[in-house]
Design a protein around this nucleic acid. Structure first.
Length: 909
RNA sequence: GCCCGAAUGGCGGAAUUGGUAGACGCGCUGGACUCAAAAUCCAGUGUCCCUUAAAGACGUGCCGGUUCGAGCCCGGCUUUGGGCACCA
């Protein structure tokens, strides 16, 4: 019987679906394990061969854990709200829901074809009202909570109201509170809510007609679509992520994530410990204290000017009459610049003198105050003290505006550039003179606090997340405006469904599409018209999988306590500063309120690498329709043309297919080498325009899903990015055929009940040990190698006692063929119901040998080892052997390395 | 500019974490089977010297160090991938 993978794979895929093989439910008798993939956004292009890489890796791990006796939760769903479907809707008028349905169905088809062990009964989509009910619910909880710094956690906002009523809080007395109107009270509370409406400078993207979060903008362009982004002041819903900055930072340490990813999050959170110092200022005779933030108070004697951010509220108060016109012109200039221009021009220094002066609280010196865009309004206090001698940005500004540079570290040269290092001995600095810089930093902080000039302050780069989008295809906010006061929709009325609208485009006035919705009201009042961003739906989806059909709660306590949190999360690094921060924040918030039992959502995280494309080229001789093979192209003047990789095999062009590919190549001529046309190649991103997209369906059709799975893993470590090259796939396909032939030849079943030999058992157990070790460390490529070695060690072994465990070992990698052979061996239930073979054998020395121990080129002693010696016995023998010539200083045996049947080396120190 | 990571044959990548460098696979070369091809199987395949083999020498981006022993550890570079970027 031949290995008919198409038939086998179809058979088992439909059987798994019919039997619900991978359905799981809480089972307290078994340990649980939760394996999660980052769910995909179902794009119109479908999956290419790079997408399933992580899914295959996690599926292997899930199947392995099942064999190890764990109750494995392994769900899948779709991140279905998003921009592409909406952009498509704007262009075509097609409802995004329709596009999403079509794409989702196609994704499902493609995923099923690969044979994943997902529990599809738990499938979810973020655009499903039954799902987004819980996204809205969480938003309401955030709206009605505040971050209580005393308890360092989120608490009901009612607690804060009580605080205002009883003893007052944060400068608001009970009397003031009592006297405040409803509107005033609402405004006060808004300043504390976790989800709040606030005016900020936002990333406005004209091209998309919406605001974007920081992680959705890169180099001044929108990540989706690549449209320019500008800064704009707008009133937007925001999430107080910044309140969690310290906790998000602190609990990173306990997570089993890669160091680089943790480092990325640490940088994004950007903790910096410094000092706030109050400078008195003078402007047209008025006095005004201004607080600045610095991490280098020690340099305060080197301050020669101060700078305000253009957006700072202090600008108006600190502009003198004389400078007013000039300042206003500068502010106008700054406003017209887009974010992209600002980034592009970071090296050009701009600014204007405000006309005001600041007084150095330590030296009493008067310094001018400037306004410049290099100071950011959103960080610190939006005002700085400038020390050009020891800060490169201040230095550049000072040079441009001819301001003095006063060094305060002995012997440093500031004629060409600033001296930024925190190293050296202080000078020109009053009481700090003679101290080491690091010492001076602490001394200056202490001094400032003692004298009441300022205080220590920790700042974070992490900003609150902008949560409003002026788009249609997202979750509606469960908020309505009662007499202008943002009011939550009753929980009982959730989900608040997305209304039908006539056109999906933003209105000409830049208003959100929901402005067009008829009767978009609640209790007779208007509803919020912006919708939530993409990350809203993906922030707690892992919780919903635990209990996906629950109408009463996001997740029941019982389900949550069983599944706890995600044990293994697999996905790309691109979410490092977006989804992975928001989810952690969201989870911590729910934890604070007692809805979930774990503080962190994802214990272990594996970042799969990207699969790049491998493009092929043909070379057309300029001005002709003649193509020259790679090896000969240097004799001609040629143009390089991308050619579809699907009509190239092993870099040899299928000439007939090429002629048929495009009409203009129908009568192409070729200059061949050795009768073949050899194509050039390059590693590029996998994309349609490079004609290098490989579709997993095609691979499944020609080689089978098991081969695809095996090959994707064989390509290299999961975490590493690597190019897809179909060339090597024959190797793993050959392996599966070979495996099949251990069971079947042309027409008979070969398996016997013979007793296995010692060497066969050894080959098997070597593999068991290797696979166990490799899967635990996600080193799947070496497991597959080990399989190939085992097969060649076993030769023509057809013994059941060997083959049966071999099938189980193969099943996580190639489940379909494993099921088929498992059934052939006479088992009626799925191979996933059995357990992982136990590792028993211990390697021993096969034949008795006399082993010469050499080091440093000389024979030191010999060991007589009887057959059957274990590594421990060999080591003991080596330790106690009389050495014929001791190593200088006295050699000591520390380690004996034994591989099956052979001593490799004896380590002497 | 700052912060991480990587560099091993023609290619993807192994190396028991300081102990036979190049496992396994691809590709290539030769052979068997075949009328022929496909499929399958066998052998060879780091470089240099050489008709070949043996033997030898060299060999993990570069320079130096530690060590009996370095792909792995330390110092200094080069190239490259990724992240952040006026964050005071």
């Amino acid at each position: 019987m031949e290995y008919d993978f198409l038939k086998i794979e179809q058979k088992w895929q439909s059987r798994w679906a019919a039997d619900g093989t991978y359905k799981v439910k809480e089972d307290p008798s078994k340990p649980k394990y939760y394996v999660l993939d980052m769910f995909p956004y179902p794009s119109g292009a479908g999956l290419h061969v790079g997408h399933p890489l992580g899914y295959i890796a996690s599926d292997i791990y899930s199947r392995y854990k099942r064999l190890k006796g764990f109750n494995v939760l392994h769900p899948m769903g779709y991140d279905a709200f998003g921009l592409p479907a909406e952009q498509y809707a704007i262009q075509t008028g097609q409802h995004p829901e329709k596009t999403t349905d079509i794409n989702t169905a196609r994704y499902r088809q493609q995923l099923d074809r690969i044979g994943f062990s997902y529990d599809w009964s738990r499938e979810l989509r973020t655009c499903d009202p039954a799902y987004y009910k819980w996204t809205q619910w969480a938003f309401l909880k955030m709206f009605s909570s505040w971050y209580n710094p005393a308890l360092d956690k989120a608490c009901p906002i009612d607690d804060l109201v009580k605080l205002f009523e009883s003893e007052g809080y944060d400068g608001i007395s009970p009397e003031q509170w009592a006297a405040a109107s409803d509107k005033e009270r609402a405004d006060i509370l808004m300043r504390y809510r976790i989800a709040y409406l606030g005016e900020t400078s936002v990333n406005w993207c004209e091209g998309l007609g919406t605001v974007l979060a920081n992680d959705e903008v890169k180099d001044g362009l929108s990540v989706r679509g690549g449209f320019p982004v500008e800064q704009k002041k707008m009133k937007q819903w925001q999430l107080r992520v910044s309140a969690y900055a310290e906790r998000l930072l602190a609990s990173l340490d306990g997570l089993d994530w890669s160091d680089s990813l943790k480092e990325m999050q640490r940088n994004w959170i950007g903790k910096s410990e410094g000092t706030e110092v109050v400078f008195n200022t003078l402007c047209d005779g008025r006095e005004l204290p201004v607080t600045i933030f610095t991490t280098r108070v020690d340099t305060i004697f080197g301050v020669t000017f101060m700078v305000l951010a253009p957006e700072s509220e202090l600008v108006h108060q600190l502009t003198s009459e004389a400078q007013k016109a000039e300042v206003e012109e500068y502010l106008k200039y700054v406003k017209t610049k887009t974010e992209r221009e600002r980034i592009a021009e970071t090296k050009t220094v701009t600014g204007v003198f405000s006309g005001a002066w600041g007084v150095n609280p330590l030296s009493g010196e008067k310094v001018p105050i400037y306004i410049s865009e290099y100071v950011l309004a959103g960080y610190g206090t939006g005002a700085i003290m400038a020390v050009p001698a020891h800060d490169s940005r201040d230095y550049a500004f000072a040079k441009k505006f001819g301001l003095p540079v006063v060094p305060i570290i002995e012997g440093c040269d500031v004629s060409e550039q600033s001296f930024d290092a925190k190293d050296g001995i202080m000078c020109n600095s009053g009481f700090l003179n003679g101290m080491q810089v690091k010492q001076a930093i602490e001394a200056a902080k202490d001094y400032v606090e003692e004298k009441g000039l300022g205080r220590r302050k920790t700042n974070y780069r992490l900003r609150d997340a902008i949560f409003s989008r002026q788009r249609y295809w997202g979750e509606p906010f469960p908020i309505y405006y009662k007499d202008g006061i943002a009011t939550p929709v009753d929980e009982a009325d959730l989900p608040l469904r997305l209304p039908e609208i006539s056109s999906f485009a933003p209105s000409a006035k830049g208003e959100a599409p929901l402005e067009r919705a008829k009767d978009w009201t609640y209790k007779g009042y208007p509803l919020e018209t912006s919708t939530m961003p993409g990350f809203a739906g993906s922030s707690a989806y892992y919780l919903r999988y635990m209990d996906p059909h629950n109408d009463e709660a996001l997740v029941s306590r019982q389900a949550n306590e069983y599944w706890q949190s995600v044990d293994l999360y697999v996905g790309g690094t691109e979410h490092a500063t977006g989804h992975l921060i928001y989810s952690r924040f969201w989870n911590k918030f729910l934890f604070d309120l007692g809805y979930v039992c774990k503080d962190e959502p994802f214990n272990k995280l594996i970042n799969q690498g990207m699969i790049q494309g491998r493009s092929n080229f043909v070379y057309r001789i300029v001005g002709t329709n003649t193509f020259v093979s790679l090896g000969l192209k240097d004799s001609y003047e040629t143009t390089e043309i991308h050619v579809d990789v699907n009509i190239v095999r092993n870099d040899r062009l299928d000439i007939e297919a090429f002629k048929a590919w495009r009409p203009e190549f129908a009568d192409a001529e070729f200059i061949l080498e050795n009768g073949e046309y050899v194509c050039g190649w390059a590693i590029e991103k996998m994309s349609k325009s490079m004609y290098n997209v490989v579709n997993p369906d095609d691979i499944c059709n020609t080689y089978g899903a098991d081969t695809l799975r095996l090959y994707e893993m064989f390509l290299g470590p999961v975490e590493q990015s690597k190019p897809w090259d179909t060339k090597g796939i024959d190797g793993v396909n050959r392996f599966l055929k070979k495996f099949w032939r251990l069971f079947y030849d042309r027409d008979s079943f070969l398996v016997t009940d013979e007793q296995p030999s010692a060497s066969e058992l050894k080959a098997l157990h070597k593999l068991i040990a290797k696979e166990q070790q490799d899967i635990e460390s996600f080193s799947y490529n070496t497991t597959i190698s080990a399989f190939m070695i085992a097969l060649s060690d076993l030769g023509d072994c057809h013994k059941r006692a060997i083959l049966e465990p071999l099938v189980v070992l193969l099943s996580p990698f190639a489940p379909h063929i494993a099921e088929e052979l498992w059934e052939a061996l006479g088992h009626s239930d799925s191979v996933c119901c059995t357990s992982f073979p136990e590792y028993k054998a211990e390697y021993t020395i096969e034949d008795s040998i006399t082993y010469p121990v050499q080091f440093n080129g000389k024979l030191r002693f010999t060991l007589d080892l009887p057959a059957g010696s274990t590594p421990a016995q060999v080591e003991e023998a080596a330790r106690t052997a009389p050495q014929t010539e001791k190593y200088v200083g006295g050699g000591r045996i520390v380690k004996v390395i034994v591989v099956p049947g052979r001593i490799i080396n004896i380590v002497v120190k």
